[in-house]
Design a protein around this nucleic acid. Structure first.
Lengths: 238, 238
DNA sequence: TTAGTACCGTACCGTACGTTACGGCGGGTC
DNA sequence: GACCCGCCGTAACGTACGGTACGGTACTAA
């Protein structure tokens, strides 16, 4: 049906570099995506093609030319936001217990900060809502999932492996260890936010939560002053 | 606007008992709510007033008479589903470590079973989606929240208090302890399900997860063979 | 029999929104 | 200047859906 090539269908019109799953949006398109993002985050605004066009001062015709359809626009918006969250790499050096704690705490704090942000809540809401229908925007959920828990795991796993190799922590499955860390960090915060619960964590709260999660995680997986502890690392079945 | 009294506005038309926040729906209305629930759960069905009327073999006029508007129907449906999940009380008796572990494991297993069910996923999706807009169905999120994490906490807290009084576990704040247990049980399961991730836990998986969560929770809060442990219960600031 | 009640089925209305089409404008190129 | 191209602004179309109105039917009660 759509005969014009969008930024997701094959090679882009302009000579933009291709990374992963599509061409880079042009500056104009980035402005449009930012406008869409603002509309998604704004609680008293509705996200329609018309509202995006109005907010971005562009025509709906351009929206359809650039993004194909509504789902394409949403997908591009989510990817656009996801692209700017990357980072926070782990600085190298000697890896002792001090640095492990620092890495975990920083990680948990960063994660909680992102998670409780308006943008993250709005995008997760959007993706969850879109994941309901059968044939609809099936991509959104996967994209958010990929840039949410999965990305967090990908970024944390090297830290855990370093801690394992340094003899600071012990686990059979890094994935399981990560999921426990995830649970200790996030707890019920995300679902409460998604369900509309007013709940804003001040930076001091986030720091305290990150510290507590790290402490608890190390209490479960740490090999400090308690060598024998068959309770956590023994389930090596998966 | 609506001049007819619905099952939520004041005393019900029929002499139904009132419990908490509204009258009990009649049998016919219960059938309608079941039909709505089935539509919500069905991934390839859309929930509209017309589809509910068609599925329940009733007229839309009756829907509006009984439930006021779409939001009232959704609210009644969520409450109807929530009403049938209650239960699983804790059986009395001597409370030793054995029974604490059993209670926690049973609790975690029940919770995971409900959480990963199609109905729970669908209702949470619905509530999350409805929590997006500004003036829309502001109740749904609160209802699901109330019958989800909050209800879980209300049901688990007595168990924790018993464990505390029996000297089996130690904590300063039962709410914080519960939230840690929540995180250890749920981890990333719920958000992954909500985002559309295929992920079904077999009963054996659920049992294993419940056991692991309980083990980890007791490793954090238990006072078994390690009396000194300043890491978990010392943060008594809130 | 008649009136009243509760309900079903369906047609209908207004609106919101996704999608398409069209007119106009500015900025390049020959 | 003539032409084309990309884009803006807006009108228009089709559909989906929330909400309302109305006729028809079964049942009850006087």
């Amino acid at each position: 049906m759509v005969l014009s090539e969008t930024i997701f269908a094959g090679e882009g019109v302009s000579g933009a570099p291709v990374d992963g799953a599509g061409a880079e949006p042009t500056l104009r398109q980035q402005a449009v995506l930012d406008a869409a993002l603002a509309l998604i985050v704004d609680p008293k605004a509705t996200l329609t093609m018309s509202s995006v066009a109005r907010a971005a001062s562009c025509s709906k015709e351009s929206l359809y030319k650039w993004f194909g359809d509504r789902d394409g626009l949403l997908t591009a918006t989510v990817q656009w936001q996801a692209a700017r969250v990357r980072g926070v790499p782990l600085s190298g050096g000697a890896f002792d217990r001090e640095r492990l704690v620092e890495s975990l705490e920083r990680f948990a704090a960063d994660w909680l900060t992102v998670l409780t942000g308006d943008t993250s809540v709005a995008l997760n809401r959007l993706a969850v809502g879109e994941a309901a229908g059968a044939g609809g925007g099936r991509n959104l959920g996967r994209i958010v999932l990929e840039n949410g828990p999965v990305a967090m795991g990908r970024r944390l796993t090297p830290v855990l492996e370093l801690g394992l190799k340094a003899g600071l922590i012990a686990f059979a499955d890094a994935g399981e260890a990560f999921r426990d860390f995830f649970g200790l960090v996030v707890r019920d915060v995300q679902i409460r936010l998604l369900l509309g619960d007013r709940l804003q964590l001040a930076p001091s709260d986030i720091r305290a939560d990150a510290s507590r999660a790290t402490r608890h995680f190390l209490a479960l997986y740490g090999v400090d002053e308690r060598p024998e502890r068959p309770s956590n690392a023994s389930k090596g079945k998966e």
